[in-house]
Amino acid sequence: MVRLKSGRDLFHRWEGNPVLALEDMPFRCNTVFNGTPVKIGNEYLLLLRVEGQQGYSFFALARSRDGYHFEVHPEPVMLPAHDRPWNDYECAGIEDPRATCIDGTYYVLYTAVSGRGYRIALAQTADFLAFERLGYISEPGNKDGVLFPERVNGLYVRLDRPFGRGIGSIWISYSKDRIHWGNSRVLLAPRPGYWDEFRVGASAPPIRTDAGWLEIYHGTKMTSSGPIYRTGAALLDLEDPARVLARCDVPLLSPRTDYERIGDVGNVVFACGAVVEPDTSVKLYYGAADTSVCVATARLQDIVDCTLNGSKPG
């Protein structure tokens, strides 16, 4: 009797992983990892977090025609600001970019790091080579910001990860002008006993599907040797995204391979974005062990189905 093999995870790793590692970089650095993808025409761009040899992070750009084989631009494309007032808040680096296209404009949310805490910053770009900083849009102690790809009821919407009473939950906030934000509330909290019991945070900017906004997020479970970072998914109401329609009980991708287990921060898969292809396959780009960039694929309908019926695998 033939039993259909399901694979270890719903997302299937590209056999050529990692997509990018240290040896692919045109300049010397410590690591290259969390990258956010956009597809412009037939070209894939990947805005990468690079940790430099000094220890602070900045962004580089990689280009590809097929989404698998990338060439890295010879110079970094965005460095921590040197001018006041920007350098007050990112003198210790810029991290974890997330790109979203709204009405033809590309926005990048990133985490600005300084002695005053992590906070979320917003920049705008046309070509991913030059960036205009628009502002810091969160209070300190907040990270993992993602923008929805369209306004909802006339408002910009973002997800982020502040702490509240020490609990790392995903919150939702709204804005009329992208600079001033409000009406914040909790969206998804850690679930005791689950793979995401310690903290959760947004990973990919939300993707519109017929079943709702698909949010691919990261969840962590704490172990005696540190956290395990996995990838999960939730569906949010299209009209009222503060309403969670469904949440997958199981992770869609977990660290299992050597490149996900071995590195500066082992046992981490951390996505910062996904590309939905015309055939509705999804390419998920993720940092592995904070040391390389990988890609995994799944069918959009399978992700939605698993999120709606996530409790079945047990």
Partner: peptide, 10 residues
Amino acid sequence: DLVYWGESVF
């Protein structure tokens, strides 16, 4: 407008 807040500064 007292609802949406930003430009937070130390």
